[in-house]
Design a protein around this nucleic acid. Structure first.
Length: 564
RNA sequence: GCGGUCGUAGCUCAAUUGGAUAGAGCAACAGGCUACGAACUUGUAGGUUGGGGGUUCGAGUCCCUCCGACCGCGCCA
């Protein structure tokens, strides 16, 4: 039986791999009967001279075959040539080096991939809808001040993952938790009240633990304008609820405006206080009690976190009967775990010690630990050239996200915040981010997109249309053309990887790689040549490249300009 | 002290989760436009992956140990 059939038209890379995989499996079964059956995995080698794909199948067979991986690989390739001679129609090269079996596709395979991208356009790489709901919580800040740099990073990471997941066909629900249940709201109220009193008496004392910075002044002024001096003679029990609530509402509205400006949208802004008032906290607590994972000690109720990998048991209800922050979070996560198939929190660096508790909680509630993931966005150091920008909150040097957006713009900020892996610390150079020069990776990628747009402007409109309608690509043979085709064909698997590993930073790297391959192609291959077939083929490659660049940029949340 | 994250080129970061000779960008040096945007590109140089030990065909990646940085370790949120 011949496993390869190429009669059905052009074969795409995945199909070619799958044909090879089938043939190899048959060859292994015939040659090494007693070898354990194992899946055959392919990877794209780092070095181009090793071909387009490689498999390490021979390594796992070597022991059973009592032979070296290299010998096994050579034997299998010889068998394949006997058993499936038509593989040569798909593969220009099948070779064994150092035990790996390396594959190089025929150009037709990459040409077929380009044709597919042109045909599918902006749908290329999109996953079919799967019936899986993901809850993604990120950004969440105390409602006591403007958004700062950390939220810029968690929002960029969260929004990018959201976009990637949606594109893959997941049902994503984004949530922001408003930490308004604790004593910090009282602090906010007192700070705001002090600002209000200072309008009439500049010497009015500001609370020692109050929120510094002058962002409360405009809110206090607004209160003074609408209410006048009527709060100056009131008792604290009267003015505190009012100033706390007004401060919270105003600041949350500001935070929301900043997030929207940053291109980040949340489906739910969840107030913890409302969660408590609605009885959800009681329900979550009751569930833990029913599960028998709590105990009472000295009048307080504890969660047996140590049974689930945490290093300490955690108080849920204080001796005075008030629930802790963690207790509210139990309720919130219990709620999320019930309505989503997967729950992801993206937290700031100070929540490091919180991960174990959360995962233990998921387990205590009867869910597998990996149903809940907590990702930590590591610390950010702001630089301006060689100078570090002070962000000390105590000293009142608050650098807000709005400040950064004013200085470098949304595009650069979104790009830089996802540049390194989330768990790597980030050094953010504001000077570099706003520089419109070749040192700035954002412009490098955007320039690629704009350069393609420029080619289309110079080209004959009829040619562009012909290329969009589908042209023959047999002339795409130049190494730069094939490298670019191979790169852009990798978009779907890259996005799948970003989602699977929660690794948004891979998108920025990929964007640069695509742009780099394009610029090299552009340098080495004249696009608007006199030969019509060649011209249309290269225009098709440009169309496909622009499609991929636009997609990646849109997932990162960066604009794809036609000109710059 | 306990726990977590990290330590990779002068700088900022990767490395498809155990694969091949550890890669990019910037900075440095030397080249490329009478062709569609030079905001581009080609090349050179730069490394004991913090140190040491272990696991195996194979380790930046896993285990142990030391060194160093940051962050947690409240009946705060």
């Amino acid at each position: 039986m011949n496993p390869t059939t190429t009669s059905g038209g052009p074969i795409l890379p995945e199909a070619a791999l799958s044909i090879f995989s089938g043939a190899l499996r048959d060859a292994i079964a015939a040659r090494y009967q007693d070898a354990p059956e194992a899946g055959i995995a392919f990877e794209a080698p780092r070095r181009p001279e090793f071909g387009d794909f490689a498999t390490n199948a021979a390594f796992s067979l070597a022991k059973a075959a009592r032979s070296s991986p290299q010998q096994v690989a050579t034997t299998l390739i010889a068998d394949l040539q006997q058993r499936a001679p038509t593989l040569g129609e798909l593969f220009a090269e099948i070779s064994a080096t150092a035990g790996f079996i390396n594959l190089r596709f025929q150009p037709e395979v990459w040409q077929a991939a380009v044709t597919q991208i042109v045909r599918e356009g902006s749908n290329f790489g999109q996953g079919a809808r799967r019936n899986q709901r993901i809850s993604l919580e990120f950004g969440s800040a105390n409602p006591t001040g403007p958004l700062v740099v950390v939220q810029g990073r968690t929002c960029s990471i969260g929004a990018t993952l959201t976009n990637a997941m949606k594109f893959c066909g997941y049902d994503v629900f984004t949530e922001w938790i408003i930490n308004d249940a604790g004593g910090q709201l009282d602090t906010l109220g007192r700070s705001l009240y002090a600002r209000y009193r200072q309008i009439y008496d500049p010497k009015f004392p500001f609370p020692e633990d109050g929120y510094p910075g002058d962002y409360l002044v405009p809110i206090a002024t607004a209160i003074a304008e609408s209410d006048g001096k009527r709060w100056t003679d009131e008792d604290e029990s009267r003015w505190l609820p009012y100033f706390s609530a007004t401060g919270r509402d105003t600041l949350v509205a500001q935070q929301r405006r900043t997030a929207e400006r940053f291109g980040v949208h949340f489906d739910l802004w969840q107030s913890e206080k409302e969660l408590q008032d609605a009885g959800a906290v009681q329900a979550g607590l009751q569930r833990l009690i029913d599960d028998g994972v709590t105990y009472e000690d000295d009048g307080a109720i504890y969660f047996r976190a140590t049974q689930f990998g945490d290093d300490k048991d955690r108080v849920l209800v204080r001796r005075d009967g008030r629930p802790t922050y963690f207790c509210t979070d139990v309720a919130y996560h219990y709620d999320k775990l019930r309505r989503a198939d997967r729950v992801i929190d993206i937290l700031g660096p100070d929540h490091h010690g919180y991960i174990g508790r959360l995962k233990g909680l998921a387990e205590a509630l009867g869910y597998p630990r990996d149903r809940l993931d907590a990702l930590i966005a590591q610390q950010i150091t702001l630089m301006r050239g060689n100078e570090q920008v002070s962000m000390s909150k105590r000293a009142g040097h608050i650098v807000t996200l709005d400040d950064i957006l004013d200085e470098v713009g949304v595009d650069a900020a979104r790009f830089f915040f996802v540049l390194p892996a989330p768990e790597s610390p980030l050094t953010f150079d504001l000077q570099l981010a706003k520089e419109q020069s070749n040192e700035n990776p954002v412009y490098y990628v955007q320039y690629g997109h704009a350069r393609i747009a420029s080619v289309f402007k110079n080209a004959d409109a009829a040619d562009v249309k012909a290329a969009r309608d589908g042209a023959a690509l047999a002339t795409l043979l130049h190494p730069a053309e094939l490298a670019l085709a191979r790169r852009i064909a990798g978009l779907p698997s890259l996005i799948a990887n970003v989602v699977e590993r929660l690794a948004p930073h891979r998108l920025t790297r990929y964007a640069r790689d695509v742009a780099s391959d394009f610029h090299q192609f552009y340098t080495e291959c004249k696009i608007l040549t006199v030969d019509r077939d060649e011209r249309l083929a290269r225009l098709s490659l440009c169309i496909a490249t622009q499609t991929v660049l636009a997609r990646v940029l849109s997932i990162i949340g960066v604009s794809a300009p036609e000109s710059m």
